[in-house]
Design a protein around this nucleic acid. Structure first.
Lengths: 258, 258
DNA sequence: CATTATAATGTTATTTTTTCACATTGTCAA
DNA sequence: TTGACAATGTGAAAAAATAACATTATAATG
């Protein structure tokens, strides 16, 4: 399967600044060079390499990037979040509009967002700043009061702002889900905003690493009926999974990389 | 001679993230493509570009492009901006509400903002993130489209958001001022926003280092009549100063530190 | 379970780009 | 002037990237 091959290529990319096609051909003799080429093309699209004659150079090793500004909470489940993000970008295609919730899961998504003509609206100012590093996406930010804890904007003025927008896919990051309370977060204004967004979006995708199952917070903003796809890193316990499926949620378990 | 040609190529490399060989050939029709190729080879050798199929990508623009651009501009007149910021915080007192424009001058202000119960609303997402590092201020962010060049939010949706707000002092950072054009900036939506804010604010304070005098940009958002206080690092030429004073502006020249 | 549909991969020819080796021109100093 | 050396030009050959289409897996559906 392509995922494991790409995971292996990513490893190489992490340990070397440059990977040649020859190397890849030697490493994966069972695949055609065209496939490996396409892999590099893919990695270029998500911004992890830049392709040069004969192979590709890892962006990670390029210059002295790699500063984690929001490293505080980022460490919480980084591998899971990355694999979830990788799954999420497969839903993204040029010319469409997306809502990006705030939070570190979404930040991972923002980092690897392909540099294409997308329309992104977000409630995370840090996420907006991450995305404008790319050349092509148009980035809008919801107005409102900024919450220190999760770096998230909300407030009823936000809702006004969204009235005239169309959203193809909303990527939402809840703080908890349980059978009884549904999807929850810790703040009423945020719950309002998410509720509003979910109602407007054509497709609702929830990003949630497994640690958030069977946890509830004070404010419910959605039930399983309101969600189309749930991306996670581990299948929840059967009862929880059943509850989600009953509401029409497609549960996608993302393989860990590496 | 090769030096001037390379200097010109370097300019291109500074303003664009990618330069194609075709572009170079068009720019230098009197040189063979082999020479231009060798130029790129040279730039690669000294680490300024990495060559990719069809041309080369500027290392400067690679990866943390945005941040570097921003911090480079930050260095444009740092001492002046710091002394201006120091003067500006003397206007700040607890319990009041402030508008913070976007831009590096304001960022300097945000950094040294006292950690008190203030209400701040800003059009700069990076400024908002800076301020929430403190414990006490309440930070709101204007909604809108995020402009890559100056990291600034604007758009007519912003205006809605501001309807119900009261602003004691607005700190505004113009890109230029001249006698003929007044205070100017480079973007129509931003001009609208600033105009709106200035009309709402009880006091309008402009932060502007001396390099911005006698420079104009396409969009005028205010005249000297609209401004109460101007903080700068050097008194402008008499004619300009007179124009400002005639409009009722109090010009405050901030001493350089150090 | 057969059958589409769709995604992933393979094959090959074509086009583009790069490299290489060598020719030419220009510059400067002995 | 001439000889050395650097800069530039030329075109053939090699390498690599692309594009278009064929094939094979995989998932989805009735």
């Amino acid at each position: 399967m392509s995922e494991s091959r790409r995971a292996r290529i990513r490893e190489m990319l992490n340990s070397q600044p440059y990977v040649s096609l020859k190397q890849l051909e030697a490493e994966f003799p069972s695949y055609s060079s065209m496939t490996l080429r396409r892999d590099l093309e893919y990695f270029e699209k998500i911004g992890e390499v830049i392709r040069v004659r004969g192979g590709a150079r890892s962006v990670k090793h390029l210059s002295h990037a790699q500063e984690e500004v929001y490293s505080r909470r980022e460490a919480e489940n980084p591998a899971a979040k990355k694999s979830i993000a990788l799954q999420a970008i497969r839903l993204i295609e040029p010319g469409r509009s997306y809502f990006f919730d705030s939070g570190t899961s979404i930040m991972n998504l923002a980092r690897i967002l392909p540099d294409e003509r997308l329309f992104v609206i977000t409630s995370g100012p840090n996420i907006a700043l991450e995305i404008i590093k790319k050349q092509h996406p148009t980035v809008s930010v919801v107005g409102g009061v900024l919450n220190r804890d999760n770096i998230s904007l909300s407030g009823n003025a936000s809702l006004h702002f969204l009235d005239s927008l169309n959203i193809d896919i909303a990527f939402i990051a809840p703080t908890g889900f349980s059978q009884e309370t549904g999807f929850t977060c810790g703040n009423s204004a945020e719950a309002e905003l998410k509720k509003y967004i979910m109602a407007k979006a054509r497709t609702v995708v929830v990003l949630m690493d497994a640690s958030k199952f069977d946890r509830s917070l004070p404010y419910t903003f959605g039930r399983s009926e309101d969600v189309d796809i749930l991306l996670t890193d581990r299948m929840p316990i059967p009862a929880t999974a059943e509850k989600l499926r009953a509401g029409g949620v497609e549960i996608v378990v993302c393989d860990k990389l590496i």
